[in-house]
């Protein structure tokens, strides 16, 4: 029993990272209808910038944390202006491929600057475990979980009450109508890429504190798809819950597969099996808006 509890707790931790990355994905999709395959690389970018600032430049962690966020804002703005804006109105395959190309470029750039070896962050939080339900949990994990929850609440409130958030939802709903009401659609697009880059960077920094970082981190971006499909592509709540659920299910099924079938490494694909099942029965996820097509 304790074994399963452990699996669930671990799943929640990994899941909270998935939620953060999925949050970034959903914000972009919600406002611009762009499916971002480079989400994992945005995570990696944040993690490496923060690493460079803390370890290579020797800045205090908090300073470099905030500087990383500024860098991600700049990155988000550049990406939107240079690469994504020419893609408005192009077929979906082009948009997918441009973000895939982008992810290749970002990954290559990171390898050029930092090489392929594992980089480890300095210890920021105490390593003394905290006991929850009789199980030891590292404080980093708790920080990750809390940060995810806080960010989710902030963004939910942002989308619900702030003028900018309402403008973003309006743009997502109908670009032409939003534009005729005086909303700068281009600014909204830029804004959503900034937010997504910032959220992803935070995810990356947390991950760096947990496991260290390698250029393989980008694969995380693919793990986002099960989470967002389960939650619904355009739902913030869905992204947050979807990430947690996928994290838990993935860990549980990995444990079960290992215990009963002796299958190693089922963790890598468990989420995609879940993804296929969801697509078969409920393609718009738990909270997504069904697409209605009219001629």
């Amino acid at each position: 029993m304790e074994y399963y509890l452990h699996l669930v707790l671990n799943g929640l931790v990994i899941g909270s990272i998935y939620s953060l990355v999925a949050l970034g994905f959903v914000i972009i999709y919600k406002a611009t209808k762009v499916v971002n395959f480079a989400q994992g690389e945005l995570v990696m970018f944040g993690a490496y910038i923060c690493f460079a600032l803390t370890v290579q430049m020797g800045l205090p962690f908090l300073v470099s944390f905030f500087m990383t966020l500024i860098f991600s804002v700049i990155l988000g703005l550049c990406l939107e202006r240079v690469i994504l804006r020419p893609m408005i109105g192009e077929p979906i395959i082009s948009v997918i491929m441009v973000t895939i190309g982008l992810s290749t470029v970002l990954k290559a750039a990171i390898q050029l600057f930092w090489g392929t070896q594992v980089r480890v962050y300095p210890q920021v939080l105490p390593s003394e475990p905290i006991w929850i339900l009789g199980l030891p949990v590292a404080p980093v994990y708790i920080a990750a979980f809390c940060l995810s929850v806080v960010l989710f609440v902030i963004f939910s409130l942002f989308f619900k009450y702030s003028t900018m958030g309402i403008a973003m939802r309006a743009t997502a709903f109908d670009q032409q109508a939003a534009q005729s009401m005086g909303i700068g659609v281009k600014n909204i697009f830029a804004m959503s890429w900034c937010i997504a880059a910032v959220v992803s960077s935070i995810g990356g920094i947390i991950l760096g504190n947990i496991n260290g970082i390698t250029p393989q981190l980008g694969h995380l971006g693919l793990k986002v798809f099960p989470a967002v499909i389960l939650g619904g592509l355009d739902s913030l709540l869905g992204a947050a819950l979807g990430g947690l659920i996928i994290g838990v299910l993935e860990n549980l099924s990995d444990g079960l597969a290992q215990q009963f079938f002796g299958l190693a490494g089922f963790r890598e694909v468990a989420a995609y099996f879940i993804l296929v099942i969801i697509l078969m029965i409920k393609p718009y996820g738990l909270f997504g808006t069904p697409e209605i097509e009219r001629v």
Binding site: I92, G265, E268, Y272, V276, L279, P283
Partner: peptide, 28 residues
């Protein structure tokens, strides 16, 4: 088969899952 129900991005994600699952099968 899912392509009847799934279009555009959803189909792309379904085939992405197919890709990862098939490579897992090759491996294991």
């Amino acid at each position: 088969i899912p392509s009847l129900r799934l279009k555009g991005i959803y189909l792309a994600i379904a085939t992405l899952a197919a890709q990862l699952i098939l490579v897992y099968i090759f491996m294991h």
